[in-house]
Design a protein around this nucleic acid. Structure first.
Length: 469
DNA sequence: TTTTGAGTTGTTCGA
DNA sequence: GTCGAACAACTCAAA
């Protein structure tokens, strides 16, 4: 019987792994391999935290594999070359991998498939791009009809999930880099990595009476409390599968105690579907990585002031909620979703910076940075994306702060110089009278910057630039 | 082919 | 302080 290679890419898990399951079906001997793609490594050099999260995940996967008679083979280089050599080294007959439909992955896989027998199975989403289409077979470009059609297909149940294998036979003495030797880039990340941490987080969020999923509809917007699932890094690397997440959401919806809890589970399910929507959009319209989805917004003259961009990146814009978000990102590699929208809107609409610059910065900083989701989200905020672009989608950072961080706890946590500022001024500290500034120990423009722009003015400017005034 | 209903996440204004 | 309407017009999806 021929040996099978399980080529791991964005599926760092043993449970509900179709590629692994199929490899085990055709062969008694399976070699799990992760290729440190030098092209991708160079690209993500700047993102130390995401690399640390990946490397930690690889180490954990290796540990789990060792418990069931296997181990992870890690090699570095161009995937096509590395796999060709490994294929001969281990005398393999076939390669299985989870399909990845991002533009880079498709090109890479086509190159490998031209030389080697690669079976691409499943995908990183529950429904792939060809599954949810309009009656005429063309792809949806509006979320809501897509979401409704998505739900009309057979919904997965727990019994569909593939259990983790109890044993994997892997020949010893295959050359590779030790997982434990992957340098951690000296980067501290405040998130546990790996499949176990991912499934524990999924359980915490979706199970039991107190599961965050049941209050998600309201709480997810609150930046001062942990009301979101915080599962994005695990979904990004396939430490949990999309199907596991969807099954958990559906089960939670089923056992919800009341209408509100049920609705909350539904809202989270929709978030998972948003992810799949953006993945299919990128598949059908790969040009979105280069330009606006909507042609009418491709000619905007962006200001792109380097000083404004620097202030945004460093969290010193003078708008507390914007600065808090950007500092949380820099410190942890993650940002609350509400803060992502606020900071993104501020960059694009208030500073008139090309959304692609923000998109690139987020990809450089986010542990969960996913090319499809990040692009879709930036285009949404910029109003250049798939949904009808209401010209009025300009977030007011003061109002947003008041609504979703009412006591300013999120701001104070990430912008410590505002620690002593009273609640009523926390989202607009420049309005403090001089005596209040002294009392709070925060002199504006000495301890904390004056706003670099006036939101009211910038809002009007944005409307002009977008051709709405 | 034509028609109809609808479109994640907001803000401002005036009653 | 709260609430509803206006913000403008277009495209998408389905009947």
């Amino acid at each position: 019987m021929e040996r099978a290679i399980w080529w791991i890419r964005r599926d760092l898990r043993l449970s509900d792994n179709q590629a692994l399951a199929e490899a085990l079906q055709v062969s008694r001997l399976v070699i799990p391999v992760f290729v440190l793609d030098t092209t991708l490594l160079k690209k993500s050099e700047a993102n130390r935290k995401r690399l640390a999260f990946l490397f930690g995940g690889l180490q954990e996967l290796d540990t789990s594999l060792k418990k069931i008679g296997s181990h992870l083979v890690i090699r570095r280089g161009e995937p096509e070359e590395v796999l060709t050599k490994l294929f001969e080294d281990v005398n393999a007959g076939v390669i299985f991998a989870e399909a990845d439909f991002s533009p880079y992955a498709r090109k890479r896989d086509a190159k490998v498939a031209a030389k080697l027998p690669v079976h691409l199975v499943g995908s990183s989403s529950v429904r792939h791009h060809g599954e949810v289409v309009k009656h005429d077979g063309s792809p949806y470009t509006v979320f809501t009809p897509y979401m409704k059609a998505w739900k009309k297909h057979d919904l997965p149940v727990r019994g569909d999930l593939i259990p983790a294998p109890e044993r994997i036979e892997t020949p010893g003495s295959i050359e590779g880099e030790p997982a434990a030797g992957l340098e951690n880039s000296g980067s501290q990340i405040p998130y546990m990595t790996g499949e176990k941490a991912g499934s524990q987080q999924l359980e915490r969020f979706t199970m039991g009476i107190g599961g965050g999923i049941f209050t998600y509809a309201d709480q997810r917007n609150r930046m001062d409390i942990p009301g979101t699932s915080e599962l994005s890094p695990y979904l990004r690397f396939g430490m949990i599968s999309a199907r596991q997440a969807v099954v958990a959401a559906l089960e939670a919806r089923q056992m919800a105690a009341n209408r509100e809890a049920e609705n909350s589970a539904e809202v989270w399910l929709n978030e998972l579907i948003w992810r799949e929507f953006y993945i299919t959009i990128l598949y059908h319209f790969p040009f979105v990585l280069k330009m606006s989805f909507r042609p009418e917004f491709r000619q905007i003259q962006w200001k792109n002031d380097p000083e404004d961009i620097t202030a945004w990146v460093n969290g010193i814009t003078g708008y507390p909620v914007v600065d808090a978000g950007m500092r949380q990102l820099a410190a942890t590699g993650w940002m609350h979703n509400r803060a992502r929208m606020i900071t993104a809107s501020f960059l694009v609409k208030d500073l008139l910076v090309d959304w692609r610059k923000g998109e690139a910065h987020f990809m450089e900083q986010l542990i969960d940075g996913d090319v499809a989701v990040n692009n879709g989200s930036w285009q949404w905020t910029a109003g250049t994306g798939t949904d009808a672009a209401p010209y009025f989608r300009i977030f007011n950072p003061i109002l947003q702060g008041g609504k979703f961080d009412p006591q300013g706890n999120y701001v104070r946590r990430w912008v410590p110089e505002l620690q002593g500022v009273p609640d009523e001024y926390i989202h607009a500290p420049w309005l403090m009278p001089a005596t209040e500034q002294i009392k709070s120990g925060c002199i504006i423009s000495r301890d904390y910057p004056n706003p670099i722009v006036d939101h009211r003015i910038q809002r009007e400017l944005a409307l002009v630039v977008y051709g709405r005034r």
